[in-house]
Structure formats: C-alpha cells, structure tokens
Design a protein around this nucleic acid. Sequence first.
DNA 1: AACAGGATCAACCGCCCCTGT
DNA 2: AACAGGGGCGGTTGATCCTGT
Length: 299
Amino acid sequence: MVSSNGQEKIELKKGPWTREEDQKLLAHIEEHGHGSWRSLPAKAGLQRCGKSCRLRWTNYLRPDIKRGKFSSQEEKAIIRLHALLGNRWSAIATHLPKRTDNEIKNYWNTRLKKRLTRMGIDPATHKPKETPGGLAQSRQAAVISHMAQWETARLEAEARLVRESKFLSKLQLLQKISVPPPPPPACLDVLKAWQSSNTGLFVLDSPTSTLNFSINSVGGVGKLNGYVEEKGMLNNLVQDDNISLCSMNNLEASMDPTLLSSECYNSGTSSYAGELEDNKNYWNELLNLVTSPVESPVF
DNA sequence: AACAGGATCAACCGCCCCTGT
DNA sequence: AACAGGGGCGGTTGATCCTGT
C-alpha cells in the first residue's frame, strides 16, 4: 500500500498480541527504553501503532505489574477511593501499588459494581438505592460529597504543584543554581498518610498513572518549597492539605472505629461527629458485606 | 456432550490535555 | 495566539473462558 505522499504505508496489525510481538517489544524497551511511542514500532520491527505498543507495555508487559486476584484490602481500597474520586481510574491506580488503571477499571466494572448493586447500593453514588431511613442517609451522602469536594481540591492542588515544580526545574536548569540535597518530602498526599497508619496500601507509585509526585521526578520538594513559598502559594497548599487530611481522617474514622479518636474527629462539631457516626455504620456495613465470604466470588 | 448465556479481561477508540514551535 | 504532535484517560468492544442446563 502506498500513501498519498509516496511513502510505503504498512498495514497496522490489531487485536491480541502474539508472543513474538511481546518479545520484540520487551527486548526493544529493555535495550533502548520506549522513547517516543510513535516511532517505537518501526524501530522495534512491529507492525503496530505506537499507542497499541504503549498500552501493551503499561497494562501487561511491564515487570512491575502485579497480576492475579485482588486482595480484600485492595477491594476495600478501590471502593473507598471510588467513593471519593469516581471513575478516575488513573488516580485510583496511583494508590494501589503495581495495579494498572485498566485492571482496576475492569475489576470495578465486572465485579465490585455488580456486588454493590446486588447489595442495593448505587455504585455511582455509593448510597443505598432505597431510602427507608432517608435523613441519616442524606447526611451520609452530604458528608461523602463534602469529602469528595475536598479531595477534588486536593488533586487540583497536586496538579498545580507539579506544574509549578516542572517550571522550577526548568528555571533552575537555566540559571544553573546549585541546591543542597532535598529534605524528606512533605506529606502532600493525604492518602499516603492514611496508608501509613492503616492498610499498607496507597503508595504513590503506579505502573500507569502519571500522578506520581516522587521527590526525584520533580526535582525535590526542598526546591519546590522555596519556589512555592516565594510565590506565596505554600499557605494555600498547606490549607488544602490540612482540610483534605481532616476529611480523609474523618472518612477513615468513619470506617474504622479505632480511629474515631483522631484529632480531626475530636475537633469537629458535635453535629458533624453525629454525621460521622452514621457514616461509620454505613461504611462498616458496606465493607462487611462486600468482604463477606458469601458475597465474594470464588477465585 | 452440546449449547446458551454470563463473566472476564485485553485491546481499541475517541477525546482531551499538555507541550513545543 | 494558534496550531500540531504526543501521550494519557475513560468508555466500550469483542474474543475467550466459565458455568449452568
């Protein structure tokens, strides 16, 4: 086949990857890295589009991918995160180490979503579909909605931070400023803090997501703090995080009775505490049901 | 054993955002 | 400011596997 500009146009292959194709892709990336995905297929001798190669690599071939069944902890994490983030699979994958967004999305759509539906819970809103106890449930919904709003604000703050840090890196490169080794990263990500006290999940390292704020990738939080402070942004970020952390603590407290004495919880108003008590019951029931052997599929 | 329907998951598609020019 | 290219994301599809009859 010949294209309009006279160059030979190779028919691109679609569909399932063969072992030979996998080996070619793996060998090429191991030797050269992926570089530009668009030009990779030609270099690797593959009759695939770059996008297909990227997907195959990120969702299947990467060595740091954990495959196989999801643990109950992972299931809980997905449900919790989906309640907060909705269908933002890449963001969810950020907090589930070695799981791809595609895998999480599939798992949600084929299993968890159905399980919640069977339980009479709307998987989109995480609220009971029927509302026999209307008032308490609407308050639960309000609390979750409130948390979701803060979580959204937090994500936006993180995105802003990355943008600023990239700018800073370029600036420093240009000015050739030497800086001391960066201090330990500020605990920007509240879910990481959540992790450290709880499930052992939620490290910010996902095979697919770009929502990775490791100190190495952004040139160091130390540099960043200096820049952000200078720009008068640090206060905003800190405020974002405090509030977000508070909301996340409350959410976690609402799911784990042992955390009900958390600082944020205690500092809340009595009415808010009441809402959280309702919320605690809701989540405990939900998670018990979801993780119960009767409801869990047999693997 | 054969078939139908459901479940699963790899892969594709289209859209959007970011970056460089 | 406008445009193009590259890459990422979420939704969807279709092939395959599984299970029940």
